[in-house]
């Protein structure tokens, strides 16, 4: 974001910069609305299954690692803070600060995925991955297996979104390095931030729903 950067021209279909930025912002919000419904199918499945089998869900929950889940929530919340600060730095034209904060956001994202991988590995070892290898003693075994199907699908789809988010931020970081942004033009940073925060919000709901089901329910 050097001072001598050429100002990015407003695309010809827009009246001015303000309108162009607003259109981009609305486009991302519209995409996020479709994403809410994309995850919404799984949340609906969760709602129905938990309503049908509350006891099995409580039993399955005892197999979840609350500590790792809570640490991962903290990691993601921190990544959202660095993302928000990265966008702010871009708004102010602070290229170096913005670059460092975007990199920090990616590092937190990778840390999240690393912890998730450890959790997945343990679930595989304990025979909790749904399928022929699934092992669970007790009358509600099949229902517990359904919980873990939902667990792997919901957290898996979320993790996929994290991977995409890290990919997007890699591009944004490279663009910052090349001085593509200025206080006049930083919309791609802001819009990528919206996506990152959205993925954080999905986890904000997954954490209590998958990790904090009370055993006495």
């Amino acid at each position: 974001m050097s001072d001598h950067a050429h100002p990015t021209p407003v695309a010809h279909q827009f009246d001015d910069r303000e309108q162009q930025t607003e259109v981009g912002r609305l486009g991302m919000w519209l995409f996020l609305a479709t994403e809410i419904l994309f995850f919404g199918g799984l949340f609906t499945a969760y709602l129905v299954m938990r309503w049908k089998w509350p006891e099995a869900f409580a039993v399955a929950n005892s197999k979840m690692d609350v500590t790792l889940g809570a640490i991962n929530t903290a990691v993601l919340l921190t990544s959202s803070l660095t993302m928000a600060l990265g966008v702010r730095a871009a708004q102010l034209g602070r290229g170096k600060g913005s670059f460092a904060l975007i990199i920090a956001t990616m590092v937190f994202g990778l840390a999240f995925l690393g912890i998730k991988a450890v959790e997945y590995a343990r679930k595989f070892q304990e025979g909790l991955f749904p399928g022929p290898g699934f092992v669970f003693e007790g009358a509600t075994g099949r229902q517990v297996e359904t919980f873990f199907s939902l667990y792997f699908m919901m957290t898996g789809l979320h993790a996929l979104h994290m991977v995409v988010g890290i990919g997007i931020l890699t591009v944004i970081a490279a663009m910052i390095r090349r001085g593509r942004f200025s206080p006049d033009y930083y919309a791609p940073v802001e819009i990528s931030g919206l996506y990152w925060h959205f993925v954080d919000i999905i986890w904000i709901f997954l954490f209590p729903l998958l990790y904090l089901i009370h055993p006495h329910l």
Partner: peptide, 10 residues
């Protein structure tokens, strides 16, 4: 409107 629309449909 866009932000609340997704929630409404959910």
């Amino acid at each position: 409107l866009f932000a609340s629309g997704g929630i409404l449909w959910l």
